[in-house]
């Protein structure tokens, strides 16, 4: 198992994909955190004016939580893709053949992929979250807003944001194990994360029963881990407890990987 882990880790870091995605994530998260930090704090400053929307009701600590954990809301697509492509690219480039020759125990292989992607996911979580925290705090400081970086609860949110993003990489491996077509993986991941789930959550929030269901969608579970989000703070949906969210996200990842193990990884490799 240890050897399989080293091998899987090396597979992840010996192509350019991981650092290109990591760089994109860092830049994107820094930009979003700065923009949202500016936007919501401006809204907050004008909180007393009439005709304000629900964002204006945000408490200052909720503002920073939204900004610092923005990667969980909008950036999880990066670790998700890294995890999914760790499996799909093996089929795309037919490297699955030498992979299985080196490790014929397919359960060991899938487990090694899940764990190694989780570790790389921590790196994505760390970089993505710190990019958001850095840019967000800089903007808040410039605007003379409190950064809350001296509070333990803020750092707890930051740490949980890292955890949530690491779990997203695990979900990615599970997803890639079920859907091995690389192009389909990219299309479905982008469509689901950027469009389907946000719309679904919005629509479900309009119904009386939908909010409870929406909380179990993967994106909402991820946000629950970080303890707050752009969506929840703006009242679009309610969230689970952080540990419940973590378990739900883990269940998606491990569950999908298990399905992949008995479908994709059971088939003949021709």
């Amino acid at each position: 198992m240890r050897a399989a882990l080293v091998t899987e880790y090396r597979k992840l870091v010996t192509t350019r994909l991981w650092w290109i995605l990591l760089l994109c994530m860092a830049v994107y998260m820094a930009f979003l955190a700065a923009a949202v930090g500016w936007g919501v704090s401006q809204g907050n400053a004008m909180g007393s004016s009439p005709g304000s929307d629900e964002q204006l009701a945000l408490a200052p600590d909720a503002v920073v939580r939204t900004v610092y954990t923005i990667a969980v809301t909008f950036g999880y697509v990066f670790p998700l893709l890294v995890g999914a492509l760790a499996v799909a690219s093996e089929f795309r480039h037919q490297t699955i053949t030498p992979t299985l020759l080196a490790e014929p125990r397919r359960t060991v292989l899938v487990s090694a992929k899940v764990i190694s992607a989780g570790v790389l996911g921590l790196v994505f979580g760390l970089v993505g979250t710190l990019a958001a925290v850095g840019a967000g705090a800089a903007v808040l400081t410039l605007l003379d807003q409190p950064t809350f970086l001296d509070e333990a609860s803020t750092w707890r949110s930051i740490a949980l944001s890292v955890l949530a993003l690491a779990l997203w990489a695990v979900v990615g491996v599970g997803f890639g194990s079920v859907l091995t077509n690389q192009v389909a993986v990219i299309v479905v991941v982008l469509a689901f994360t950027q469009f389907v789930e946000p719309v679904l959550r919005f629509v479900l929030a309009l119904t009386s029963w939908g909010a409870d269901v929406a909380a179990y969608l993967p994106g909402a579970a991820g946000e629950a881990v970080a303890g707050g989000s752009f969506f929840s703070e703006s009242g679009v949906s309610s969230l689970l407890e952080w540990w419940q969210g973590a378990l739900v996200l883990l269940a998606y990842g491990v569950g999908l990987a298990a399905i992949g193990r008995v479908t994709t990884f059971r088939r003949d490799i021709t």
Binding site: A4, V6, T7, R10, K11, T14, A102
Partner: peptide, 11 residues
């Protein structure tokens, strides 16, 4: 790098 993928599994 390709060959180094497998050295841990070969031992």
């Amino acid at each position: 790098d390709h060959l180094r993928l497998y050295t841990p599994q070969v031992g």
